[in-house]
């Protein structure tokens, strides 16, 4: 049990690290949010799962934490993205692509 728990903890940490790396490497706010939101969500879920295997008695509390993360994290990033768009930030585009089409 403890080994499975450790495995989940490491996996969760790995995804959180990738999320952070994504925030550094992506070119604009929208792509950064993409990396940040998804990786951070699965990272958090991984760590929650890891804690569950170490302390199975906490399952109910862990479920609530997981649900909370699942609801707030997409709402937060959508809100930031919406604010960025209405503040006039245009999404980054590949070079060589013709401008003017799309939003």
């Amino acid at each position: 049990m403890a080994v499975i728990g450790d495995l989940f903890l490491v996996l969760g940490g790995l995804f959180l690290f990738l999320g952070a790396l994504g925030i550094v490497r992506m070119p604009d706010v929208f792509n950064r949010l993409q990396a940040g939101t998804k990786a951070a969500t699965l990272g958090a879920l991984g760590i929650i799962a890891g804690v569950f295997f170490h302390h199975p008695g906490w399952w109910a509390k862990l479920m609530i934490i997981a649900l909370f993360v699942l609801i707030t994290s997409p709402v937060g990033s959508s809100t930031i993205a919406r604010a960025a768009l209405s503040a006039g930030i245009r999404p980054w585009r590949e070079r060589g692509e013709d401008e003017g089409e799309g939003a």
Binding site: L18, G22, P27, A35, K38, L42, P91, R93
Partner: peptide
């Protein structure tokens, strides 16, 4: 969700970020 993470992870660690974004 799991697919999303593997997908983003792959894009993040590829040497030149493999993205073709659009709204």
């Amino acid at each position: 969700l799991v697919g999303a993470n593997l997908d983003v992870a792959r894009r993040v660690i590829s040497p030149k970020p493999d993205i073709h974004p659009a709204l």
